[in-house]
Amino acid sequence: MAFTLDEAQRIVSIALNHGRDAGWNPLSAVVLDAGGHPIAFARSDGASPGRYAIAEAKAYGAIMLGMGGRAQMARAEAQAYFMGTVNGVFGGKVLPVPGGVLVRDLDGAVIGAVGVTGDSSDNDAEAACAGITAVGYTPEP
Rank of each mutant, 00 (worst) to 15 (best):
residue 136 G to M: 11
residue 75 R to K: 14
residue 95 L to D: 10
residue 44 S to K: 02
residue 87 N to L: 03
residue 124 D to M: 02
residue 70 R to V: 13
residue 21 D to V: 10
residue 122 D to F: 06
residue 128 A to E: 11
residue 40 A to N: 12
residue 46 G to K: 11
residue 136 G to S: 12
residue 137 Y to T: 00
residue 5 L to E: 12
residue 117 T to D: 11
residue 128 A to Q: 10
residue 111 I to K: 07
residue 89 V to C: 10
residue 43 R to L: 09
residue 84 G to M: 01
residue 52 Y to R: 03
residue 81 Y to Q: 11
residue 116 V to W: 02
residue 86 V to G: 00
residue 140 E to A: 10
residue 114 V to A: 03
residue 7 E to I: 04
residue 31 V to E: 05
residue 47 A to Q: 11
residue 48 S to T: 12
residue 63 I to K: 07
residue 82 F to I: 08
residue 18 H to S: 11
residue 110 V to Q: 09
residue 94 V to A: 04
residue 86 V to C: 11
residue 11 I to N: 00
residue 74 A to Q: 13
residue 107 D to M: 11
residue 116 V to I: 12
residue 21 D to I: 06
residue 117 T to R: 01
residue 87 N to V: 04
residue 108 G to P: 06
residue 118 G to I: 07
residue 73 M to Q: 15
residue 56 E to S: 10
residue 94 V to R: 02
residue 45 D to E: 15
residue 136 G to Y: 09
residue 62 A to R: 04
residue 52 Y to T: 03
residue 126 E to F: 04
residue 120 S to A: 11
residue 95 L to W: 03
residue 105 D to Q: 09
residue 8 A to N: 07
residue 30 V to F: 02
residue 88 G to K: 12
residue 70 R to Y: 14
residue 66 G to C: 05
residue 81 Y to K: 11
residue 83 M to P: 09
residue 29 A to R: 06
residue 88 G to M: 10
residue 102 L to K: 01
residue 94 V to P: 02
residue 48 S to C: 05
residue 91 G to N: 13
residue 110 V to L: 04
residue 50 G to S: 12
residue 99 G to T: 02
residue 59 A to F: 08
residue 45 D to C: 06
residue 29 A to G: 08
residue 49 P to L: 13
residue 116 V to K: 05
residue 126 E to V: 12
residue 10 R to K: 15
residue 116 V to G: 08
residue 6 D to Y: 05
residue 91 G to T: 12
residue 87 N to E: 13
residue 106 L to T: 13
residue 12 V to G: 04
residue 8 A to C: 08
residue 49 P to G: 09
residue 111 I to D: 01
residue 136 G to I: 08
residue 23 G to H: 12
residue 134 A to C: 06
residue 140 E to D: 15
residue 17 N to C: 00
residue 27 L to D: 07
residue 36 G to K: 08
residue 22 A to P: 05
residue 83 M to V: 15
residue 8 A to K: 03
residue 65 L to M: 13
